[in-house]
Every structure is written in structure tokens, then in C-alpha cells.
Simulated scan of single mutants.
Amino acid sequence: MTKHFRITSNNERFLITGIGGIKLTTFTLWFIWGMIFLLLFQPGIAHDGADFGLELFGEALLPYLLPYLILTQWLIRLPKKERNEGRAWLYTKTYAISAFGGFPTGAAAIAYLTKSGTLSRKDSSLLLAVCHSPSPMFLIGFVGVELLGKPFEGWKLLAIIHLVNLILLIFVYFKGGHVTNNSKKRAQETQFKSPSPLSDSLKESSNIILLVATTVIFFATISTVLSSLIANFMGPAADYYALGIFSALEMTTALQIAKDLFEQASLFPYIIAAILSLNGLSIHLQVLVIAKSAKIPIRPYIFLRFLHVLIVPFIYSLLQ
């Protein structure tokens, strides 16, 4: 029997469907306690998972994310001219920042512009949904060179992702709100409180990097423990179930596992494209935590992520 109930969070209501009257909070509690016991009874595997997540963060994410994150945070904190920026320029600038920095750089820039009053809530929610892509260095360097062995494949994926995003950017521009009238005043207040753009960008970047590292290592650990549990029951098929778990939870780890399992298979590039489109819960939580700090609505983000999962792999398959 299906039962419907409502929960309230941040003044928004979402309709949640429960099966057999089991509430979402009850399931969450069981899951948390289950993972705690799994970690306690498999400390060695949990340690291996944490090491794996730390290694991937240090080798695949930190070199490609940190320099761009600092520079983009520095850029948006530079003193502005004594005039209000139009929506078209703000959209273009914010998209460019996210395109070069990769996720969650776009979310961080949007959160700052929202807190400073430069972007309205409606504009920020739409931009959050569109300004979301891997950094060029990650796609070309890690995915193209290290995984696929062809830099051109990384460029191709980069072009497809940004083609889809730019089309959506034009669409949401006409659906957006407006730049807030108090942008000049709020920007001046922010600059007064933050007289050193570089120092503030370093501080903010360190917080974001810590968030990224935490989510990557946590989900790598959880995924490793769950994969080990599945391996005890699934036998030879366990690796494929593990790939599914990692794809849902932590993208970078899933990409590495996909290489180990399918590197010689003809389907390997398509699997990589699908995993990149999913992003994984780790990345989505990074974006949602940053968005929550600025009280940015997230429904457009969730909708367009589903759209990306359908469109990007399809276009990539057509171009192979």
C-alpha cells in the first residue's frame, strides 16, 4: 500500500512517497546505523576506501580544481565599476567562470553573487542549474589522456557538455528574473567588509576544497564498504554492481573503476560519458551545500541534471 506524506524544509514542501508507511527518516536512520556497523566490522576495507578516495582527490581533482578555484574566486571579488551589470553580462561572466573552474566553482561564484545582492534568487537558481560542468583540465587531462588515451575524446566531451549548457543558458536567460536594484549598494558593502580580494578568495577556496575532499573521501569509503558486502553475495558480477554503486555516489572513483573493467571494450567511451553525465551524489551534495548557504532554490538544478543524463551520452554516441 502506498502512503503519501509531506515534509517541510527551508520553507519548501516536497511530496514524498513512502512504501508500506515507512518514512524517509526511518530509512535514513537504518541506513546510517547499518553503515556504522559495517565500518566497525570492516575497518580494513573502510581504511582502503578512504585511502582510495584520498588518492583520487589528490591526483585527479586537487591539481585541476584548486588553481582555477582560487583565480575565479579572486576574479569575482575584484572592485567593480560604478555601474550595474546587465543580466546578459552577468550570465556570460558566471558561465565562463564555471566553465574554466569546473564544479563546484560555478556554484561558489553564484552563491557569492547572490549573497552580495548582484543576482536575484530566480537568476541564481537558473544559473546554478546551467553553470555546472567538469573543468577543461579534468576532461582533457584525466578523462581524455589518462582514461581514454585520446585527448581528442576529452575535447569532444567538453564540446558536447558546453553545447548543451549554452543552449540551456540562452533558454534560462529569457526565463530569468532580473538583476537586483540594490546590487551597487550591496557590492560596495561586500567590498568594505572584504578589503583583500586575494585573501578572501584563498579563504573561501580552502572551505570549498575541504568540502570537496570530505565528500569524495566519504563516498569513496561508503562505496568501497558496500561493494565489499555485495562481493560476498554476487561473486563474479560483484565488480559490475560496484561500478553502479560508485557511479551513483562518487564519479571520479567510478571513472577509475570503469577503466579497470572496460578499458578494452568498445562500450568503454560510452560508459565514461554516462558516468560523467550522472556526476554522482558526491558532486551534487557539494553544489547543494554551497547553494543552501546562499538560500538558492535547487529545483531547476535537479531538473536539468536529469536532462543532462539523457542528452549528453546520446549526442556523444551519435558522434562516435
Results as ranks from 00 to 15, higher is better:
Pro269Trp: 03
Ser266Met: 10
Ser282Trp: 09
Ser247Gly: 11
Arg305Ala: 11
Pro236Ser: 14
Pro300Cys: 07
Asn279Met: 15
Ala248His: 10
Thr224His: 11
Met251Ile: 08
Ala231Ser: 14
Lys295Cys: 11
Val289Phe: 14
Ile283Gly: 02
Gln286Cys: 10
Ile271Ala: 08
Arg299His: 12
Val287Glu: 08
Lys295Tyr: 12
Ile283Lys: 01
Gln286His: 08
Arg305Leu: 14
Phe233Glu: 04
Gln264His: 08
Thr224Glu: 13
Lys259Glu: 12
His284Arg: 08
Ile302Cys: 01
Ile296Gln: 09
Ile302His: 03
Leu249Asn: 05
Ser247Gln: 12
Tyr240Pro: 02
Phe262Arg: 04
Pro269Tyr: 09
Val289Gly: 03
Leu288Met: 12
Ile257Asp: 00
Thr253Ile: 01
Lys292Met: 05
Ala265His: 15
His284Met: 10
Pro297Gln: 09
Met251Tyr: 01
Phe246Asp: 01
Tyr301Glu: 06
Ile298Tyr: 11
Leu261Gly: 11
Leu243Tyr: 04
Phe246Met: 04
Ile257Gln: 04
Leu276Phe: 04
Ile290Gly: 07
Ala231Trp: 02
Ala274Ile: 15
Phe303His: 03
Ile272Lys: 02
Ile271Pro: 01
Lys295Glu: 15
Leu288Phe: 11
Ile283Asn: 02
Ala291Trp: 05
Leu278His: 06
Ser227His: 00
Leu278Ser: 12
Arg305His: 10
Ile283Glu: 09
Ser227Thr: 14
Ala238Leu: 05
Leu281Gly: 10
Leu229Cys: 12
Ala242Pro: 04
Thr224Leu: 00
Leu255Val: 06
Tyr240Val: 09
Pro297Asp: 09
Ala258Val: 06
Leu267Lys: 02
Ala294Trp: 06
Ala273Leu: 01
Ile230Val: 14
Arg299Thr: 15
Leu276Gly: 09
Asn279Thr: 15
Ser247Ala: 15
Leu267Phe: 11
Pro300Asp: 05
Arg305Thr: 10
Leu261Ile: 15
Gln286Val: 08
Ile290Thr: 03
Gln256Glu: 13
Leu285Tyr: 11
Gly244His: 05
Pro236Tyr: 06
Leu276Thr: 07
Thr224Asp: 03
Gly244Asn: 07
Ser227Asp: 01
Pro269Val: 07
Lys292Trp: 08
Ser227Asn: 02
Pro297Tyr: 03
Ala231Asn: 07
Val287Pro: 11
Ile290Arg: 05
Ile302Gln: 00
Tyr270Asp: 09
Gly235Val: 04
Phe303Trp: 10
Glu263Thr: 12
Thr252Ser: 09
Gly280Thr: 11
Leu304Asp: 09
Leu281His: 09
Leu229Phe: 14
Phe268Cys: 06
Asn232Pro: 01
Lys295Arg: 12
Thr252His: 01
Phe262Met: 06
Asn232Asp: 03
Ile275Gly: 04
Ala254Asp: 01
Phe233Asp: 04
Pro300Asn: 03
Phe262Gly: 06
Leu243Arg: 01
His284Tyr: 08
Ile302Asn: 01
Phe262Pro: 06
Glu250Trp: 02
Ser277His: 00
Ile275Cys: 04
Tyr270Glu: 05
Ala265Thr: 12
Ser247Arg: 00
Gly244Ser: 11
Ile275Gln: 03
Phe246Tyr: 13
Thr253Arg: 05
Ala248Glu: 13
Gly235Tyr: 03
Tyr241His: 07
Ala237Gln: 14
Leu285Gln: 12
Leu255Cys: 05
Asn279Ser: 15
Tyr241Gly: 14
Ala273Lys: 02
Leu285Trp: 10
Ile272His: 07
Ala248Pro: 07
Arg299Met: 13
Glu250Ile: 00
Ala265Asp: 15
Leu276Asn: 12
